[in-house]
Design a binder for these strands. Structure first.
Length: 523
RNA sequence: GGUGCUAUCGUCUAGCGGUUAGGACAAAAGAUUCUCAAUCUUUAAACCGGGGUUCGAUUCCCCGUAGCACUACCA
């Protein structure tokens, strides 16, 4: 095997939002490329004109950008160009010497290779209409367009040369099919699974090109492009494994077997419950995102949630995804993207599908949230605060609050419900808490405590703790009873951090005001 | 139906012939405490079945079973 530069590609179809499984494929490609000092290409496989979704391309680029998966060549790599500006085609400008990188813009290239196959007798032209094929499938069970049936179909193998030319001249639609020689064992070497062998007889004569839209199918375009773009490793989902032998046959037909890329088929991402591939519906059904970014489907008008909008940090998503199907071997679970680039290896990718564990995704986000500084968190929290009408608030206090409360949340978005009482006095009191913690003697005790606190010039946590505990001891009150009632006055419910942390933040005046309000309001 | 891939706690996984089968998430219990969390400690929890190979199989091989994928003029 000759050593050559590592070049990998991520090649999505612009048929909608980028699925989280696709994100993982992109990630593994990226990690592999970076680790080997290679190139990461992005190619758009838009050979199915009927499934094109406007905006999908932009979505893909934006998602990868958010996650920090950088493209070196192809669509979305405009920033690699010296002095490049993201202007002409927006995010989707391309850069590189092997373009165009959109398959729909490579028609001329495919024509050439289709002709080559036709001329060498490795492919043939077929006129059978979809309807006719459908009928065959009805008539003959397990009908397959292959060596056993092709001589009874409408194609350049059974029709005269003149007839074929006439039909084409008349504008009849046709396809070009790959002529697969039967009964040959084809072996694909997979970096993750080892050798996979199938017999060519089970393959059908795949359509390589359709004249209806003048576009190749995936199989042809894929092989031609990977070859021309000098792709060294094809890392893709397991759903492609069954067609990998076909691809090998295609490389052979072109005489490119020497430079054929190596293959690695990744295990699938499965539904959290039950079995089967993870789908968009599962996310909707179980309430978690399957897309990196929120997606507005222009065709259906539906909006699907995204990890970014749900408050996930990109590094948490990357970390979580990396470990879904790959493991370094030790007990380490928290990896930065740089560490992943260091440690990743294809031979440690597992072979079996991984069920999607949404709870663990949250845990990862929690871990990354803990790593953020209080200053960073305060900054991230600002927009949320402003939404609730809090605009001017002392920065150091805000940071202090974030530091106090961050360990109990998974997302920045949960911060408000955990901390709102620092900013806004309670107007209502949680009934459950009242029932459990507000007793007959509470109003009287609160009144006494109010008077006690009113006298304190030193409102520090240390001093308050001292005098209040002393007072409780003298009166032989229950600590729990007093403190819980006090907490209800300040927070409105039986939750929150240590009580003196709260008084410390809101101060004497506000503490007394809240007590007064509570005593007046709670019947 | 055909072909292929896969198979360790509920989940993600470690293990690459000899281990008390390890870790993490989730779960349970306890500690802590003025509350709720968090945290810490602890517990429970797995080698799909059957044959081989071997002194010895979770590990290697075969068969079965199950799951998944593919089987389009979609990718």
């Amino acid at each position: 095997m000759l050593q050559r530069k590592v070049r990998v590609r991520f090649a999505p179809s612009p048929t909608g939002a980028l699925h989280i499984g696709g994100v993982r494929t992109a990630l593994y490609n990226y990690l592999f490329a970076r680790q080997h000092g290679g190139d990461m290409l992005l190619r758009i496989e838009d050979t199915d004109s009927t499934r094109f979704v406007p905006g999908a391309e932009e979505y893909i680029i934006e998602a990868l950008q958010w996650l920090g998966i950088e493209i070196d060549e192809g669509i979305g790599a405009w920033n690699k160009k010296q002095g490049a500006k993201n202007t002409d085609k927006g995010l989707c400008s391309e850069y590189g010497e092997n373009g165009p990188y959109r398959q729909s813009e490579r028609r001329d290239i495919y024509h050439k290779y289709v002709k080559q196959l036709l001329d060498s007798g490795k492919a043939y032209i077929a006129f059978d209409t979809p309807e006719q094929l459908e009928q065959k499938r009805q008539e003959i069970k397990n009908f397959q367009y292959d060596a056993t049936t092709r001589m009874s179909m409408l194609n350049s193998l059974t029709l005269s040369k003149e007839e074929v030319e006439k039909r084409i001249a008349d504008g009849e639609k046709y396809v070009v099919r790959f002529k697969i020689e039967p009964n040959e064992d084809v072996t694909v070497h997979d970096l993750i699974r080892g050798d996979v062998t199938i017999n060519s007889s089970i393959l059908d004569d795949k359509v390589l090109y359709k004249s209806a839209d003048d576009l190749p199918t995936y199989h042809l375009a894929n092989i031609v492009d990977d070859h021309l773009m000098q792709v060294s490793h094809v890392i893709r989902g397991e759903e492609w494994l069954p067609s990998a032998p076909l691809h090998v046959l295609l490389y052979r037909a072109f005489g490119w077997e020497d430079t054929m890329p190596e293959f690695a088929h990744l295990p699938l991402l499965l539904k959290p419950d039950g079995n089967g591939k993870l789908s968009k519906r599962d996310g909707d059904r179980l309430g978690f995102p399957v897309f990196p970014l929120e997606f507005h489907d222009p065709k259906t008008g539906t909006v699907s949630m995204g990890y970014r909008e749900q408050g996930y940090f990109p590094e948490a998503v990357i970390n979580f995804l990396a470990l879904l199907g790959w493991h370094a071997g030790g007990d380490k679970e928290l990896y930065s993207i740089d560490e992943l680039i260091q440690e990743f290896s294809l031979d440690r990718v597992s072979k079996s599908g991984a069920k999607f564990d949404f709870e663990k995704a949250k845990w990862f986000n929690h871990q990354y949230l803990q790593q953020k500084s209080d200053t960073e968190l305060a900054e991230l929290f600002m927009p949320e605060l402003q939404k609730h009408g809090i605009s001017a608030f002392p920065q150091d206090t805000l940071e202090h609050i974030c530091g106090l409360m961050k360990e109990r949340v998974n997302f920045v978005s949960e911060l408000w419900e955990q901390t709102s009482f620092f900013f806004v006095a309670p107007t209502e009191f949680d009934e459950k808490s009242l029932k459990k913690r507000w007793k007959e003697e509470s109003p009287r005790q609160m009144q006494e405590m109010y008077e006690l606190l009113e006298q304190q010039d030193d409102f520090s946590a240390a001093n308050l703790d001292k005098v209040v505990m002393q007072w409780i001891a003298e009166k032989e009150y229950g600590v729990g009873l007093v403190m819980n009632a006090f907490r209800i006055c300040l927070v409105g419910a039986a939750r929150g951090p240590h009580i003196w942390e709260i008084t410390d933040v809101i101060g004497k005046e506000e503490t007394l005001r809240r007590m007064q309000y509570a005593m007046k309001t709670i019947a």
